Amino acid sequence: MRILVTGAAGFIGSHVAQRLLERGDEVVGLDNISDYYDPKLKLARLARLETSSGFRFLKADVGDRDAMRDLFSGGGFDRVVHLAAQAGVRYSIENPHAYADANLTGFLNILEGCRHAGVEHLVYASSSSVYGANAKLPFSVSDSVDHPVSLYAATKKANELMAHAYAHLYRLPVTGLRFFTVYGPWGRPDMALFLFTRKILAGEPIDVFNHGEHRRDFTYIDDITEGVVRTLDKVATPSPDWNPMQPDPAVSSAPYRLYNIGNNQPVRLLDFIGAIEKALDRKAVMNMLPMQPGDVESTYADIDALGEAVGFRPRTPIEEGIARFIVWYREYYRA
């Protein structure tokens, strides 16, 4: 197939593009190479993809309406994996307009492109952050998510609503994936594993919010990639069991699906740090701090629906995933 992957220079996007290329798909990767974090890392991810003859890169912004119209009009894409977004809960407090531009306008441009180009299936990134103030664990896609605690979460919830509208109005098959704290080699430098590793190696103290009592459903990148590709291959269809008198948010009478994609095994932050210390063979100096604005106490993915739909089952224990990251980190920065 000919597949468009937006955010192809990003952490998840580059891994998904690599997996699609390995199985023989033709991939067009799109990214604006923003400076939200070190562009050198993004360019290094792209360099790995560009060794494949099946890969073509386009530097563009999903928020650019004209560029997206031109891309889709001549693209001939069978399917689209939309992973480009302004990420980060904390940054959304500092720079809210970046989230409107990338996550709302950008997603609308992708929906319009898919609609007019007759794309067979759009798979897009949502986030576990949409669960917001929900306290019932594990988080289920059938639960209401009407109480976001960050603008980032609100934009991702908006994406789900926009996707449903297009599925209903234009019969565009769409599937949303709520990602749960993805980690692993080539990861994002603004995330905990990267930050903690760098500071522990430098002998600097690490900031540990909520005194390390957070619990996160850390999910290894290879497991995530496998789930994304399996979902892309299963085109969303209307649910024959959907009941408008008791509507389930995860399904619809339209070709619309919504899934959690996580490890289904939350880990306490202090235990996560302990696994990093073990892999590095160094102890962390911890600066214990209270909860941050926009943060939540725990995340825990109910992944039964995705398992039933595509056979998704995470396979990577946290200790193994962290050890692989540490090996990559040392090799990358030594190089």
Rank of each mutant, 00 (worst) to 15 (best):
F77H: 04
E94C: 09
A100E: 10
G88Y: 05
V28G: 00
H82K: 02
G29H: 08
R19C: 04
A87N: 09
D38Y: 04
D101Y: 10
A17W: 09
N103V: 11
D66K: 14
A17E: 03
D35E: 12
E50A: 15
A102C: 10
G24A: 00
V81F: 03
D66Y: 08
D70C: 05
V27F: 03
S73I: 06
I93H: 08
E112K: 06
E94R: 14
I93M: 12
I33A: 05
G63K: 00
Y36F: 12
L41W: 05
R69L: 03
L20H: 04
T105M: 05
A44R: 12
K42P: 15
V89P: 10
A47Q: 15
M68D: 01
D31I: 02
K42Q: 15
F57R: 07
K42T: 11
R65V: 02
R19I: 00
R90E: 15
I110M: 12
K42R: 15
F107R: 04
A67Y: 09
F55R: 07
S14Q: 14
G113Y: 00
D78F: 00
A102N: 12
F55S: 03
A47G: 14
T105A: 09
R65D: 06
N95D: 13
N32S: 06
G75R: 02
I33T: 06
Y99E: 03
P39A: 13
K59W: 04
N32T: 01
N32C: 07
T51Q: 15
A47Y: 11
R45K: 15
G74V: 10
D70G: 12
A117P: 07
E94S: 14
N32Y: 04
L49P: 01
D61R: 06
Y37T: 00
K42A: 13
T105D: 11
S14E: 14
R90A: 14
V81M: 06
D101K: 12
L71G: 07
G74M: 10
H82E: 01
A102L: 07
Q86C: 09
H116L: 14
A85K: 02
S14H: 14
V28N: 00
A85D: 08
T51W: 13
G13T: 10
S53N: 03
V89E: 09
G63M: 06
R48N: 13
D66V: 13
Y36R: 11
L46K: 13
I93L: 15
P96N: 12
H15F: 09
I93N: 01
N109I: 00
R23K: 05
G88D: 09
T51V: 15
R65H: 08
D61M: 04
L104F: 09
N109R: 07
H97I: 09
R65F: 04
E22W: 00
L104T: 03
Q18N: 14
A84Q: 08
L41C: 08
K40H: 14
P96S: 12
R79S: 10
I33D: 06
R45A: 15
G113A: 03
P96Q: 13
E112M: 02
R69A: 10
F57E: 09
L104W: 05
F77L: 01
V62W: 01
L46H: 14
A60R: 08
R56P: 04
F57C: 11
R45L: 13
